[in-house]
C-alpha cells in the first residue's frame, strides 16, 4: 500500500494529465457518434443564449441578401396563386370546366419548421450548425434540414429551445442521393477539404455518368422527401482497385453564408421504420 501511495505521489502530474485527457478524449469520440449529454454543446441554455445575442448583432450584416432571398421566395409563391394564372379554356369563362378535387384525399406527410442558424462552422473536419428551434417547436434528433437551395444536414441533438445540426460537411453524414434522370443512387460523403464540393460513392463504374447532371435526395431513409437538390456533378474518377466511380458533387448550398433553413418532420416515419424493422436478417 505504501508503495502504491508513493507511486501515485511520484507520478501524480502524469496521472492527473492522463485523467483529464481521458475525460476530454472520451467526450470528443463519443459525442461525434452519439450525443449523451447536452450541457457540453451549443444546444445548452447558457451558450445558446450567448450565441443568440451574437446572432442578434451579426444577422444585420446580411440584411440586404436576406431581403433578396425573401423576395425571390415571395415571387415563387406568388406564381402559384390563382390570380397569376390564366385559364386554359378562357372562352367559356373562368373555371367553368374545371373539376374541383377534394383536398381531403391528400394527407400531409411532411411538416416543416422554419429556423435560423445562430452558429456555424465550415472549415473543421466535422461541422455542426446550431438552430434557434428545439423540442418546443417539435424538433427531434434524426430530422432532416434543408434550405431553399438544397440539403443542409440532419438534426443531431436538441434541447427545449435549441438544436444542433450535423451538416453535410461531416465525416459520416451518408445522405441517400440519386442522379436525376438516370436514377443511379449512392451515398453522399465529404472529404474535409473544400466546403463547396462533396463526393458521391457507391455507384458502379459500368454505368455512364454525365457531367453536369443534377444530384437529388432519394428519400430512402425517411429523413428527406424525394427530390431535394443536393448539387451538380463536376468530376468523375475511377476508384483504384474497385469497380466504383468516385463522383465529385458541387453542393448547391453555399454552407459559408447559409442563414435560413427548414426542418422536416416526416409524419409517417414511424410507419416506414416499423415495416423495415420486420425485414428478416437472413434476407439481407
Amino acid at each position: 500500500m505504501r508503495n502504491f501511495i508513493a507511486f501515485i505521489r511520484r507520478f501524480r502530474v502524469l496521472l492527473y494529465f492522463a485523467l483529464l485527457q481521458g475525460i476530454a478524449l472520451a467526450f470528443y469520440f463519443t459525442f461525434i457518434s452519439f450525443p449523451r449529454a447536452q450541457w457540453m454543446t451549443t444546444a445548452s441554455a447558457v451558450t445558446g443564449t450567448i450565441l443568440e445575442y451574437r446572432n442578434d448583432i451579426t444577422k444585420h450584416f446580411n440584411l440586404s441578401k436576406n431581403n433578396d432571398w425573401l423576395q425571390k421566395e415571395n415571387i415563387r409563391l406568388r406564381k402559384m396563386l390563382k390570380q397569376s394564372r390564366i385559364s386554359v379554356d378562357s372562352e367559356k369563362g373562368e373555371d367553368s370546366n374545371v373539376v374541383r378535387i377534394d383536398d381531403t384525399l391528400w394527407r400531409q406527410q411532411y411538416d416543416f419548421v422554419a429556423a435560423t442558424i445562430i452558429n456555424s462552422t465550415h472549415n473543421k473536419r466535422n461541422n455542426y450548425f446550431t438552430l434557434n428551434v428545439g423540442k418546443a417547436q417539435g424538433v427531434e434528433r434524426g430530422m432532416g434540414v434543408f434550405s431553399d437551395e438544397g440539403v443542409v444536414g440532419i438534426v443531431h441533438n436538441s434541447n427545449t429551445h435549441y438544436a444542433v445540426v450535423k451538416s453535410c460537411l461531416t465525416k459520416d453524414i451518408n445522405v441517400d442521393v440519386l442522379i436525376q434522370g438516370s436514377g443511379e443512387f449512392g451515398i453522399l460523403k465529404w472529404d474535409g477539404k473544400d466546403p463547396r464540393y462533396g463526393t458521391m460513392t457507391g455507384v458502379s463504374n459500368d454505368l455512364t455518368i454525365k457531367k453536369g447532371a443534377k444530384v437529388i435526395t432519394r428519400g430512402g431513409a425517411a429523413i428527406y422527401p424525394r427530390g431535394i437538390p443536393v448539387g451538380v456533378i463536376t468530376k468523375t474518377e475511377v476508384v483504384e482497385g474497385q469497380p466504383l466511380w468516385d463522383i465529385t458533387v458541387k453542393f448547391s448550398v453555399d454552407f459559408r453564408k447559409l442563414q435560413r433553413v427548414y426542418v422536416i418532420n416526416n409524419l409517417l416515419k414511424l410507419e416506414q421504420k416499423e415495416l423495415e424493422e420486420n425485414i428478416p436478417m437472413i434476407a439481407q
Binding site: A24, L25, Y28, F31, I32, T41, S44, T47
Partner: peptide
C-alpha cells in the same frame, strides 16, 4: 486548462477538442 477548454468547446461544438489540445 481543462476549465478553459471546456468553456470554448461548449460554445463551438467541438466536444473536447480544444480541451485536449490545451491540456497538452
Amino acid at each position: 486548462a481543462f476549465v478553459m477548454g471546456m468553456c470554448i468547446d461548449a460554445m463551438s461544438n467541438t466536444y473536447g477538442l480544444h480541451t485536449s489540445a490545451l491540456l497538452a
